[in-house]
């Protein structure tokens, strides 16, 4: 047993570190969060792009995720516009992925002989990423604590081989294992008394401020402009880095920076959506525009080393 303040059932950071340890021992690279605003851990290039191409890839990381429309000014104990996902991506999906996942639950203190753990059908789809997969919501005593997905397509491209993706909702999981009813009451650092720092101490003010920003203050004119800029820049970078006719240059040279712009466009779209300035019909077209960017990035990624272009050339 770890020292008490690192206990995943008492400490939010202890929970994260336990998962890090577990997946690191399995052989994952433990990455840090991507340094951009994203709606979910899937947007991290370590998932979106690395899920493509033939190269094996095992990674785990925490990703702060922003869903502007979920802001509740800090008044709802279960809903946040900024929260943490724990993301694991294993490519190709190992045959014992379910057992590995269940092992991780055990590691954070969920004994499957005490808790009712279930895999309930849930097909996953991300229209902006042009991605879909089949899998489950993982239930613990009736509560959804993770998403479990076998990626079939990402960026509109068939995954070959298929990657398995596990996404843990960290706050929800922590609330359950710590037995608290409000996210703001979570013990973050596992200390007690004066030394105790709660989730609310760290994030309540941020939730209030960002809710105001998302729903009231964000400058929509500027955001609309930024969307256009990000879209144009993404396309320009893809163009600039594209392989030429010259056979010396068969790799794409500028995919990751282009993908950053795609992420940016996606987040700006979410903000505009929260501000209520996008109509139903426009909504579809925005989603389509982001999807076109992600598809173009995915296709370009296949022309890079990490995307397996050298393997394909050698074969």
């Amino acid at each position: 047993m770890t020292t008490d303040h690192m206990n995943p059932t008492r400490s939010f950071q202890g929970l994260i570190l336990t998962l890090h340890n577990y997946w690191a021992s399995y052989g994952c690279v433990v990455l840090q969060p991507y340094d951009m605003e994203v709606g979910a851990g899937t947007f991290h290039p370590a998932t979106t792009l690395r899920a493509l191409g033939p190269k094996p890839w095992n990674a785990a990381y925490v990703q702060p995720s922003r869903r502007p429309t979920d802001g509740r000014y800090g008044e709802n104990p279960n809903r946040l516009q900024h929260y943490y996902q724990y993301q694991v991506i294993l490519k190709p999906s190992p045959p014992n992925l379910q057992e590995l996942y269940l092992g991780s639950l055990k590691a954070i203190g969920l004994d499957p002989m005490l808790h009712d753990i279930r895999f309930v059908e849930d097909d996953w789809e991300s229209p902006t990423l042009g991605a879909w997969g089949l899998g489950w919501e993982c239930w613990c005593d009736g509560m959804e604590v993770s998403q479990f997905t076998y990626f079939q397509q990402v960026c509109g491209i068939e995954c070959a081989p298929v990657a398995g993706e596990l996404t843990y909702g960290l706050e929800r999981l922590a609330m359950y294992v710590q037995g608290v009813d409000s996210v703001y009451d979570l013990n973050f650092n596992g200390r007690e008394g004066d030394e105790k720092v709660t989730y609310g101490d760290i994030f309540l003010q941020a939730e209030q401020e960002y809710s105001r920003h998302n729903f009231e203050f964000a400058n929509t004119k500027m955001l609309l402009k930024h969307f256009e800029d990000a879209e144009a820049e993404c396309q320009a970078l893809l163009q600039a880095g594209a392989p030429g006719d010259n056979s010396n240059q068969r790799l794409h040279k500028c995919v990751l920076p282009a993908y950053d712009q795609c992420i940016k466009a996606s987040h700006i779209f979410n903000l505009l959506d929260a501000r209520g300035v996008i109509s139903v019909t426009e909504r579809q077209s925005y989603i389509l525009r982001v999807r076109n960017l992600s598809k173009a990035c995915g296709e370009a990624f296949l022309l890079t080393d990490a995307g397996g272009a050298s393997i394909a050339a050698a074969a």
Binding site: P92, P95, L134, Y150, Q152, A160, P161
Partner: peptide, 13 residues
């Protein structure tokens, strides 16, 4: 109604 591929074998069509 809906089916999927998985694992190492899914590298090949």
């Amino acid at each position: 109604p809906k089916s999927m591929r998985w694992g190492r074998a899914s590298a090949k069509p």
